[in-house]
């Protein structure tokens, strides 16, 4: 019975017809936020740049789900499903990051920011191979970083 009531309520909400104007308004806000995130992103803000970009993206995402995807008019079950999936995303992000942030320093991969060790030489060249890329030998010949062969 409760489910039937919920269906009825949702149907009523979806039937309550809004003008198309609301979609255009949301579109305008999304475009403005895109410009804001591009402008602030190009400033390369030192510490809170990533945080700011993620906050703006979250606001944009919320607008899309609430109004374009009609979550604002949907009832409990749909909101529960979406909310739980977002909660799991946050858990999936937080737990590995907490692990990485609290590791014994020597357990981080050599060459990474939190390691004292040099990156492993994977044997593709004395200078370049250390960076983990299989640099093509033929194309590295006349770059300034590669010392010219002695004759």
């Amino acid at each position: 019975m409760a489910i039937a009531n919920e269906s009825h309520q949702e149907e009523k909400n979806m039937d309550a017809h809004h003008g198309a104007g609301r979609y255009w308004l949301i579109w305008g806000v999304l475009l403005v936020l895109t410009v804001v995130t591009v402008v602030t992103g190009r400033m390369h803000l030192p510490s809170f740049g990533l945080l700011l970009a993620l906050v703006i993206a979250t606001v944009k995402g919320t607008l899309v789900t609430l109004y374009f995807m009609h979550l604002a008019e949907h009832r409990g079950a749909n909101r529960l499903v979406f909310g739980v999936s977002i909660l799991f995303v946050v858990l999936m992000l937080v737990i590995p990051m907490a692990d990485l942030g609290t590791r014994f320093r020597g357990a981080n991969p050599p060459g990474s920011q939190y390691s004292d060790l040099q990156p492993a030489d994977i044997g593709t060249g004395t200078q370049r191979g250390r960076f983990g890329g299989g640099v093509r030998q033929t194309e590295t010949k006349d770059t300034p970083e590669t010392p010219a062969p002695h004759h």
């Binding site: 269906s7 009825h8 949702e10 979406f82």
Partner: peptide, 30 residues
Amino acid sequence: ASLEVQNHAARLGMWLFLATEILLFAGLFV
């Protein structure tokens, strides 16, 4: 039971599917 319930079920099913999609991309975000 009714068309309302059928629509509600379809919508809920879509949200469930979208939740799996979100988690699929979340792996790459991690």
